[in-house]
Design a protein around this nucleic acid. Structure first.
Length: 556
RNA sequence: GGCUCCCUCGUCUAGCGGUCUAGGACAGCGGCCUCUCACGCCGUAAACACGGGUUCGAUUCCCGUGGGAGUCACCA
């Protein structure tokens, strides 16, 4: 039996040859400068921060370069990890981010573009065609080793402190003759297809990475599986076939792939294909017991994008922070942009491979919070209202109902100290809104157990007099802010408190306190809180009727 | 264990032989401003892992040590 006959025995369903696919998926007609990038997630039904990170960086490089293409490929060759509606859920979750997809999978069973199918489970025959070619060249062979035998070898290698893997004397099936192998296959023995690696471990291979520069690795000499017993390809083989056929120019992926560079280069060389340019980005880590480790979806709740959705942290903020971690010059640009334009769009920034670091970075929630506060402070009242409502509808329906009851009123509350030169920066997430302004809604105010946080003035009698005097003599919902404040000052004087804080500080013994103490009393009686946004706005929005009710409710 | 990468304030980093008594941002602390908080402003504390070279000179170059990370599956 010759190689070709043997290959036909191994791959009876393969109808075409490599040339057929070369022709079917011709090189893209794009300018030299254009990039073709991709993200290739596995549909595990769980959107990981690392996936967003990968989507962002691949998409951004394409988006910022004219005529470039960013496509999505679904890597679903692992049946064990497959989840019902995984693709739909993935695409739904990613849709909240400002990620522009040009091609590939855009939804469950929905694809666009001429280089498909973009779902690996639908490309079986293509992979087998390429594997078959290797067999005809004597560069791949069937392996009949059992899982037990492999595990056993693995353990022996560890015990003997030998390099692990299927190579050299450990590659038991490498030298089985074609005729013997054919016989065993005809007898129904189970097998996988392995690469017959031409590599020599004692030789070095050089590789240039867009981020990490040039490094030298030993040549890859392990006979890795290329086609699994389920007839689907392994990652490495699918990477070769897909990125070549889909004409990817830049493979931007996590640094966990860096060690497999020698293998991937070898694979491309075997077929005489030009490898894509590679860029290995540092991974997101987290600190644990004083050391860094990769963000894990099992252990770290903040690794799941759902964590941010639940809190209501804006997705734009996550992108902003990712860009910040990615490019060291981002922050300067961000600050400048923020100062000049009052808001920042991450797409206006130019990501640069040269500015990407090489070591993994800690994902810092506090920094993210800071960015979120700044970001939300730049939004208009309508935007804040809409996003708060959208969040509440999913995660806090009772608050959503309250917000929608009187939309104009709700917007006024959210609009306090918003806009202008020094907007409030106290909200880092839309999920925090209820807690920051609950006292403005009667439904919430009346439902809660109230805890009045009085400060310097705590004498009930004094408080009662101050409040009733304010309401009867001074309050007027039509006052402008200056008039309002002038009245608070008068009220202070009337009760023996300094009208200015400075005045009090210069001569503390002459007063019972100062205007700040008086306004604090009003603030606490009306809201129970000693820290709120502008009291003038609050009293104006609440109105005299409700202010009186609240004065009564305070049981003074 | 093999291979590869990394090592500047707590964190993200600037730095590419003299500009470094090491700069910025977040977090911390103190103050100012102020009706409270937030904002803003000002200030403060905080780092070149260690040891050898090379050099007139090393955060920067080389070697070693230490530490950390990633990877070594019919997972991607």
């Amino acid at each position: 039996m010759n190689n070709l006959e043997f290959a036909n025995l191994l791959f009876p369903d393969v109808k075409h040859d490599i040339a057929y696919y070369e022709e079917k998926y011709p090189p893209r007609n794009l300018p030299e400068t254009a990039l073709v990038t991709r993200s290739a997630p596995s549909p595990t039904g769980f959107l990981h921060l690392g996936t967003v990170y990968n989507f962002f960086v691949n998409q951004k490089f394409a988006r910022q370069t004219k005529d470039s293409v960013f496509y999505i490929r679904i890597e679903d060759t692992d049946k064990k990890r497959e989840v019902e509606n995984g693709v739909a859920s993935l695409m739904h979750d990613i849709s909240f981010f400002d990620i522009k997809i040009n091609e590939g999978v855009i939804g469950q069973d929905k694809e666009i573009g001429n280089y498909g199918p973009y779902t690996q489970s639908k490309r079986g025959e293509i992979y087998r065609t390429f594997a078959k070619y290797l067999v005809t060249q004597g560069l791949a062979y069937p392996c009949f080793c059992s899982e037990e035998s492999l595990t056993n070898d693995h353990n022996v290698q560890i015990a003997a402190k030998e390099r692990q893997g299927y190579y050299g004397k450990w590659a038991h099936c490498r030298n089985i003759s074609i005729d013997d192998a054919a016989e065993r296959i005809k007898n129904g023995e189970k097998y996988i297809v392995r690469l017959k690696s031409p590599g020599n471990y004692s030789r070095k291979i050089k590789h240039k990475d867009l981020i990490r520069g040039e490094t030298e690795f030993p040549e890859h000499d392990i006979d890795i599986p290329i086609i699994k017993s389920d007839n689907l390809p392994t990652y490495h083989f699918a990477h070769l076939v897909d990125d070549h056929l889909m004409r990817t120019t830049h493979v931007i992926r996590g640094e966990e792939w860096y060690p497999s560079m020698p293998l991937h280069i070898q694979l491309f060389n075997l077929f005489g294909f030009k490898p894509p340019k590679y860029a290995h980005v540092p991974c997101l880590s987290k600190e644990e017991n004083g050391s860094k480790r990769k963000l894990s979806k099992r252990k770290d709740p903040e690794a799941a994008v759902s964590y941010y959705h639940e809190k209501g942290i804006p997705t734009d903020t996550i992108l902003l922070y990712i860009a910040n971690l990615l490019n060291s010059n981002f922050e300067d640009w961000y600050n400048k942009e923020f100062k000049e334009k009052g808001q920042v769009n991450v797409n206006d920034f130019m990501l640069d491979f040269k500015k990407i670091g090489t070591s993994s970075m800690l994902f810092d929630l506090e920094k993210l919070t800071n960015i979120a506060k700044n970001y939300i402070s730049t939004l208009t009242t309508d935007e804040v209202f809409n996003k708060t409502l959208a969040h509440a509808k999913i995660y806090n329906s009772s608050f959503a109902t309250i917000l929608e009851k009187d939309i104009a009123y709700s917007k006024k509350i959210l609009g306090i100290e918003r806009g202008g030169v020094k907007p409030r920066k106290d909200i880092a997430a839309f999920g925090e809104v209820e807690e920051s302004c609950w006292y403005m809604f009667d439904e919430l105010f009346n439902a809660r157990e109230l805890n009045y946080q009085f400060q310097n003035i705590s004498d009930k009698n004094e408080i009662e007099k101050i409040v009733s005097t304010y309401l009867e003599k001074y309050f007027d919902g039509n006052d402008d802010k200056d008039t309002w404040f002038e009245k608070i000052k008068k009220l202070s004087e009337e009760f023996g408190y300094a009208r200015e804080v400075k005045e009090y500080k210069n001569n503390p013994s002459a007063f019972k306190g100062h205007v700040g103490d008086i306004s604090t009393v009003l603030r606490v009686v009306f809201t129970t809180q000693n820290q709120t946004p502008d009291l003038y706005e609050i009293t104006k929005l609440l109105g005299k009727q409700r202010l009186s009710e609240r004065a009564n409710k305070a049981k003074l």
